[in-house]
């Protein structure tokens, strides 16, 4: 029994140490972001600022067009999440409830595209968007991301678990397929849809390579691309850099803490199904 308690203590110790290692970068970020400039570059480092400088956030916000970057990031996030939900709901319905010619072949081809790394698609997509005249416009940031095979797959699995008898009953009552989908299936699939939406929102907010390539003017940049530009301009003013980084990191951490049940579920399910 004593040995048991000892090993429990050991487990707690390691878990707490590990958690600290996970959290310290964020604590250090926030601590630095609140320091006066002369307290940043000192040895030994100071964890708690003597004088809390909330002004750093305002200073960082106004030293680059962060308002613009945020608006862009929010527009892209909202538009691509809503768009993806719509295309996903329609496609998942067809794959789970309509038996049509070529269904299994089309579905396998879609799953096949999932294995291809996005980097392979970069160049042709850039050319396509240039020819459409969409480079450096919102369309380039949004349209390619309006559908996702992974989401279709996830929702199709969920739709398959809804009993078919439900749709027979609705049909007898004279409900059209389309209405049935939106008024019965969609509300039932709410957990899966929240999972899809939240994973998409996080991905969109944090996306870097694609916005870097398809935006050229300053006022089309999203937050991560803007932050990189800011970091090149600011150099070593770490208190401002950390304040700017916090502004990108904290919204997603808050979203995650509120909706973590759905995120964990999505990640775990994706993991099991592969």
């Amino acid at each position: 029994m004593q040995k048991e308690a000892l090993s429990k203590g050991f487990i707690y110790l390691l878990l707490i140490l590990g958690s600290l290692l996970m959290l310290l970068p964020f604590i250090w970020m926030i601590s630095t972001s609140l320091k006066a400039a002369n307290e940043v570059m000192i040895m030994p480092p100071k964890w708690i600022p003597t004088d809390i400088q909330w002004g750093n956030y305002i200073k960082a916000w106004f030293s680059a067009p962060f308002a613009m970057y945020s608006v862009n990031s929010v527009i892209v996030l909202v538009a691509s999440t809503i768009g993806e939900l719509i295309t996903t709901i329609l496609a998942a319905y067809a794959f789970s409830r309509i038996n049509f010619y070529g269904r299994d072949i089309i579905f396998s081809i879609l799953l096949g595209t999932m294995m291809v790394p996005g980097e392979v698609l970069l160049i042709p997509n850039f050319v396509t968007l240039s020819n459409l005249g969409w480079i450096d416009h919102y369309q380039a940031l949004i349209v390619p991301w309006l559908a996702s095979v992974f989401s279709i797959f996830l929702l199709r699995q969920f739709f398959l678990s809804i009993p078919k008898e439900l749709s027979f009953a609705a049909k007898i009552d004279g409900c059209s397929d389309f209405r049935f989908l939106w008024s019965v299936m969609v509300p039932l699939a709410k957990p899966a849809l929240i999972t899809i939406a939240i994973l998409k929102a996080i991905g969109s907010w944090n996306a870097f390579m694609w916005p870097l390539i398809v935006t050229s003017s300053e006022n089309m940049r999203t937050l991560p691309v803007g932050l990189i530009a800011f970091s090149t301009d600011t150099g070593t003013k770490y208190e401002l850099l950390m304040a700017a980084s916090s502004m990108i990191i904290l919204p997603m951490i808050i979203l995650y803490i509120v909706l973590q049940k759905y995120i964990m579920e999505g990640v775990a399910r994706a993991g099991i199904k592969g």
């Binding site: 996970m22 970068p25 990189i228 951490i253 995120i263």
Partner: peptide, 11 residues
């Protein structure tokens, strides 16, 4: 433990 995963790689 999961927090870093949801944060922006760039930031």
């Amino acid at each position: 433990y999961f927090i870093p995963f949801v944060t922006s790689v760039v930031a």
